Simulated scan of single mutants.
Amino acid sequence: MAQYQAVLQDEAATLALATRIAGLLSGGQTLFLHGDLGAGKTTFSRGVITALGHGGTVKSPTYTLVEPYQLKPFTVFHFDLYRLRDAEELEFMGIRDYFRADTLCLIEWPEQGSGYLPVPDLDIHLTFVDGHRRVLLQSQTPAGAALIKALTDDEQ
């Protein structure tokens, strides 16, 4: 399992990292975003979606559960499972249909969907430490490891 860690000084740094990662995505990937309320999960998602070409507002899908974005490279599905009452609801909404080679799935609060979600390519953990955000990326698949390798190679 490959890892990448960084300190994100502010929202701009979070968006910059999201933009860098967006440039490495090719579709078919699933990213889980972990962190407390206000840790930057939606900010990170907004950075990825905007970098992939969405020109409008990126809103948190807290009440809709999922927001689709039809973008030129691929379709992005932005999930927020915070308010999910029962993970089995994902089965009823056809969750498996979202995970395809021509999509990117960004999932906030993935632990709420435990047992109904695939293994993510990347687990992205956002935390507050000493007044700054810290990010820890952990690969869970070879595709995730390749993303982290490309990200670290880009820094050198």
Rank of each mutant, 00 (worst) to 15 (best):
D154K: 15
V66F: 02
L71Q: 09
L84P: 02
Q156T: 13
C105Y: 07
T43I: 05
Q9N: 10
A143V: 14
G47W: 00
G47Q: 02
V135D: 01
A2R: 11
R20K: 15
L126V: 07
R46H: 11
L106Y: 03
Q9S: 08
T103K: 08
E89R: 05
G38A: 12
L136P: 10
Q3G: 01
D123Q: 12
R133L: 07
R100G: 06
E11G: 08
D123N: 13
A101R: 12
D153L: 13
R20A: 15
I49Y: 00
A101G: 00
S60F: 09
T75S: 13
S114T: 09
R133V: 06
I21Y: 01
E108K: 00
W109S: 04
E89T: 05
L33P: 05
S114V: 06
V66C: 03
A2K: 12
V129M: 08
Q138D: 12
S114L: 14
G144H: 06
D86Y: 02
P73F: 09
A6F: 05
V76K: 10
F99W: 11
Q29G: 07
P61M: 07
G35I: 08
V76L: 04
D86M: 02
L65T: 05
V76M: 07
V58F: 10
A143Q: 15
D123R: 12
K149I: 10
T57I: 04
G38Q: 12
G35F: 04
I148L: 11
H132S: 12
E88L: 07
H54Q: 12
E111F: 00
A145F: 09
E67P: 01
T127Q: 14
Q138S: 15
I49C: 00
Q140Y: 05
Q9E: 12
R96A: 15
L81N: 07
A145S: 15
T57C: 00
A12L: 13
A143G: 04
T75L: 06
